[in-house]
Structures are given as C-alpha cells and as structure tokens.
C-alpha cells in the first residue's frame, strides 16, 4: 500500500476547495445543506459519519456525490444479514501460480478504499459490523494473522434506518462512539422537494465534478485542526459534555430525567474538531461558541444513552442537547 502524499493547503485554498466541494455536492443534493456540511466536516477531520434517515431521502446519494466531488477511491458495501466479515475486509484465496504451485493470495475487500459507503449498516450481524468497525478505529485490517494498512484518507460513511425492522442489529454504543457525527437526514421542504423532482426526473442525471483529491483533503484537515480555540471555549465544550451526564451538577432537568449515560470524551473531541472545521468553513480563523453549537448535536446525539423513561417517552436526544446548550452559561468570566 502506498501512502497518499499530504499537500499543504493554504487558508485561501482551503476556503476555495471547501466551497467547491460543497458547491458540487449541492448541485446534486437538494435541501440537505446541513447534512452536506456535516459530512464534509467529518471527511476533513478524517473521521467517520453515520447518516440516519428514512429510506429515500438521499443518504446514499449524498455519499456517492461526495465521493464524486472528491477524487477518492469509493466503495459501497450493502449490509445484509448474510454479509460476512470477509466480504468486507477480504480473504485469502487459494490461487494456482504459473509454475503449478498453489498459494494463498489476499483478495482485498471493499474496505480497501478511501471512501466507504456502509449502507444500512445495522442490517448486518454484529460480527460483520465489528469487522468494519475495527477497520474504522485501527485503520488496519487483519486477515489470517496478517495486518494490512488502509490507505489514507479513509472514511466510512454509514447509513442506518431508524425504523424498527425485522432482521436489524442496532449498533452497540461503543461502536456508535466511533462515528464522529451522527447526521440526521431530514425530509426535504417543499421547495427542496420540487428541486429534487426537477433534477432527478429528467433525462440528464446531474453528477458532481471532481474538485479535490485525497492529498488536498488530508491537507485541508491538517490545516483546519490547527484552528485556535480560546481556552474558555474549550472549557465550555468540556462543561457541555459533562452537562450531558445526569449525575453532574450542571446537568439540566431533561438530562437528569431521561439520560442514563452522557457523552464520552470522544464526544468532546468531536465537537472541538468539528467546530474548528466549521469555523474555517464559515470564514473565521478561530472557534466561536456558534461553531460549537452548530456541531454539538451531530457530535452528541448518538452518544447519549437514554434511560427507560427517555425511551418510553420517545425523548429526542436533540431536544436534550438543545436544553443543555440553553441552560449552560457560555463563560464564567473567571479568567
């Protein structure tokens, strides 16, 4: 496996590339600006995203379009109950060589790509899910005691259906925690829906042009992660995450009533990283509270484990996060 070179990206280039990527994706995707922004943030941060939405809202289209806009190797894995781990990571196959000898040769699976679309990930068995999740965390694949490094950039953009259906295997919390964002793909508004109809029912199907390659994506990410964060903003993020824990003093009423476990430190990391990229995407060079508030729902909603009351009353994690943001003071002015 060869390493993708990292291209230094200036702030001007970052801005231009980001705008180009969003523009290209939005040429295809209509009315999913927030989802596009969130997926882009995950890609630039080098993390993975989980997209959730009812079927037919364009989750797969969004990821495919993103792959089209980025000059990356794309692979799609349709998760089904009979999908085996080897179907994802690959397997050693017995191959007869020219000299007549037979030997095992590693046949790489679809995970050996830059951008993986794990479609309906919760339809596969936990064993198969864990094969992908190991690759997401370690960015390596081990087959027959041999490890294979995945080529950066490596992004997994998974989708899952929120509806309870037969034969689904919900992702465990530990595995959900490996996704930087959980992006809700909402139903488009009327105007957006009309736009979708206009663009997708004609003879010509719009496609996104490639505007950035892998090296640029990595360079953009490295630049964005250097964005400065004021100490009180960092403290605010820490307090925000702590406030999602019901046993914390600053936890609001909803957290105390409906949350069983709060967000992990990975959630705080995801917020900071996402906020940095969000700030640069907004044309700012520092992280503001607005950036934190913009990315906090996506970073925390899959990290809140509701208790029985929360599940019984169908409390939305987004409502809890909004309550935390509303009640938490931005700064304590204590130096």
């Amino acid at each position: 496996m060869s390493n993708t070179p990292i291209e230094a990206v200036s702030l001007e280039q970052f801005s231009a590339l980001a705008q180009a990527i969003e523009r290209e994706v939005k040429r295809v995707m209509v009315g999913q600006d927030e989802a596009v922004r969130s997926v882009l943030i995950c890609i630039l941060a080098g993390r993975h995203a989980l997209l959730e939405g009812v079927p037919g809202l364009g989750k797969t289209m969004l990821i495919k379009t993103m792959a089209d806009a980025l000059d990356l190797k794309f692979a799609r894995i349709q998760f089904t109950p009979d999908l085996m781990p080897s179907d994802i990571v690959g397997t050693d196959i017995l191959e007869e060589q020219e000299d007549g000898r037979r030997a095992f040769r590693f046949q790489a699976g679809p995970v050996f790509a830059n951008l993986i679309l794990a479609d309906e990930i919760n339809r596969a068995t936990p064993k198969t899910q864990s094969a992908l999740l190991e690759a997401m965390q370690e960015k390596t694949v081990t087959v027959a005691n041999r490890s294979y490094k995945l080529e950066p950039p490596f992004f997994v953009l998974a989708t899952q259906n929120p509806l309870e259906m037969e034969g689904t295997y919900p992702l465990p919390e530990a595995q959900l925690d490996r996704f930087m964002f959980k992006v809700n793909v909402s139903f488009p508004a009327l105007d957006d829906l009309i736009g979708i109809l206009d663009r997708t029912t004609g003879a010509a199907e719009p496609r996104a042009s490639k505007v950035a390659d892998g090296a640029q994506v990595i360079g953009m990410g490295k630049l964005a992660l250097n964005a400065p964060v004021a100490s009180h903003v960092t403290e605010y993020v820490a307090r925000l995450v702590l406030a999602t824990h019901p046993d914390n003093q600053s936890a609001p009423r909803m957290v105390r009533e409906y949350v069983r476990y709060g967000a992990s430190p990975r959630g705080a990391q995801s917020i900071i990283m996402g906020a940095k990229i969000h700030a640069l995407l907004e044309g700012r060079y520092n992280v503001a509270f607005e950036d934190v508030h913009a990315v906090a729902p996506a970073a925390l909603r899959h990290r809140l484990l509701l208790n029985f009351e929360g599940l019984a009353e169908a409390v939305r994690p987004d409502a809890i996060i909004a309550e935390v943001i509303k009640t938490l003071p931005r700064t304590t002015y204590n130096g």
Partner: peptide, 9 residues
C-alpha cells in the same frame, strides 16, 4: 465570535 479573546490568548 470570540475573535478578541482568542487573539489575546
């Protein structure tokens, strides 16, 4: 948007 405090820090 925290520009001032970030700059000073």
């Amino acid at each position: 948007d925290e520009r001032l405090s970030t700059a000073l820090e």
